[in-house]
Amino acid sequence: MRLQRVRVGAVYGGALLGPLGGGVVAPMLPEIGRSVHVSPEAAAASLTAYFIPFALLQLVSGTLGERWGRRRTVRAAYLVYAVGAVVCAAAPSFAVFLAARAVLGTANAFTSPLLLAGLGDIVARDRLGRAVGVYSSCQSAGQSFAPLVGGLVVASSWRLGFVVVAVAAGLLAFAPPPGEPRPAASAPPWRPLVSRRMASLSAAAFLSYTGASALPFMVALYAREELDAGADLTGLALLGFGVAGLVLGAVWGRVTERFGARACGAVAAVVTGVFVAVAGVSGSVGELALWWTLAGAGASMLTVALQSLTLRAVPRNRGGALSAVSAFRFGGGALAPLIWLPIYHVSAAAAFVASAASLLIVLPVLLSLGKPG
């Protein structure tokens, strides 16, 4: 029982580390730029360098990790992550820093889906929904507090932040999730990943991220340009989305266990869409913060529902299913500015309504899955 708790705790720690390591650079960009002799705008490429390999490799990383063995794949990925973080901390040039950030994104592609897949072997089936909810809360915590952590460590040295990340990854390498290599006939199959059910889940994940979770840039623009808010108030308005996910993830896990992940996901898509649309007509920063926080609560439930459905979609290749769907999810995040900014520059309210409408498409997509999750 004690070993099981350690393993579950390590999975939750890994869920937090990935988004923390990815987003911690956001408040450090001016200091990073000065250290490696580039502008803050150029330093922002370090975010792209992390997330492009992270998203693309997840198309295959889960299945490869299942074949190589979850345990040794995740352990190796953590060690690579730790080395990449050390190189970031010591980087003498921007080119080296960018390369090390790409290494971090690559390593994270081989941890995130396999950690969640490992929960299926550690946690009893009747408690799996709430475990997925806690996992989602930890991811939200990483996303929400990465800028805060980065801002705190930059007061002494931005390089210290990567030392902390390296130490955390090194410690987590001692507690990888269970899962031995599966060669030859026992190898997890690729074919079930190309199915109508997986296509529906991938589409729902793409739309959920494009229509809500990837919108902080648009919410920030609205706060600054339409409501004349300062950077500090804008940051506070954005914080509620992630905090809602952090607080409610475990609750949504229990709710999906009781009512079914498919039904909960459908309801969450509609509710989130309503609050995203309303956020685009906010008359004050406080009102915007309220609607955006409520949208975060709905988006958190949608994420938990989709992760629960995906975890059960391909029993013989859970890691492959989770990583493939996650690739589409983060792909939606990468494309969101390209999709919504042209509409926003014509009408801010129209951009929020269009984002909400994309979430409503999730409803028939989930209903097409048939048997509830």
Rank of each mutant, 00 (worst) to 15 (best):
A107H: 04
A107K: 00
A107V: 05
A109H: 08
T111S: 05
T111R: 09
T111G: 07
S112G: 07
P113C: 03
P113V: 06
P113T: 05
P113M: 07
L114K: 07
L114C: 12
L115P: 02
L115Q: 02
L116F: 09
L116A: 02
A117Y: 13
A117L: 13
G118K: 10
G118I: 09
G120W: 12
D121P: 03
D121A: 08
D121M: 14
I122P: 06
I122F: 12
I122M: 11
I122Q: 06
V123Y: 08
V123N: 05
A124Y: 10
R125Y: 14
R125D: 15
R125V: 11
R125W: 15
D126S: 08
D126L: 00
R127C: 09
R127E: 05
R127S: 04
R127I: 06
G129S: 03
R130A: 10
A131V: 11
A131H: 07
A131S: 08
A131P: 09
V132H: 01
V132I: 08
V132W: 10
Y135M: 04
Y135R: 02
S136H: 01
S136W: 14
S137L: 13
S137G: 07
S137Y: 14
S137E: 02
C138N: 03
C138T: 01
Q139F: 15
Q139C: 08
Q139R: 06
S140G: 12
A141Y: 04
A141N: 04
G142N: 07
G142C: 14
Q143K: 12
Q143W: 10
Q143V: 10
Q143Y: 13
S144I: 03
F145C: 12
F145T: 04
A146I: 13
P147V: 03
P147S: 04
L148F: 15
L148G: 01
L148D: 00
G150N: 14
G150L: 15
G151C: 11
G151R: 03
G151W: 11
L152I: 06
L152H: 13
L152Q: 13
V153S: 11
V153F: 12
V154W: 10
A155F: 15
A155K: 10
A155C: 06
S156K: 05
S156N: 02
S156V: 12
S157A: 09
S157M: 01
W158L: 10
L160V: 00
G161W: 09
F162A: 00
V163F: 15
V164P: 02
V164C: 05
V164I: 11
V164L: 14
V165L: 14
A166M: 15
A166W: 13
A166C: 11
V167A: 15
V167W: 15
V167P: 04
V167R: 01
A168T: 15
A168P: 09
A169M: 01
A169F: 13
A169H: 06
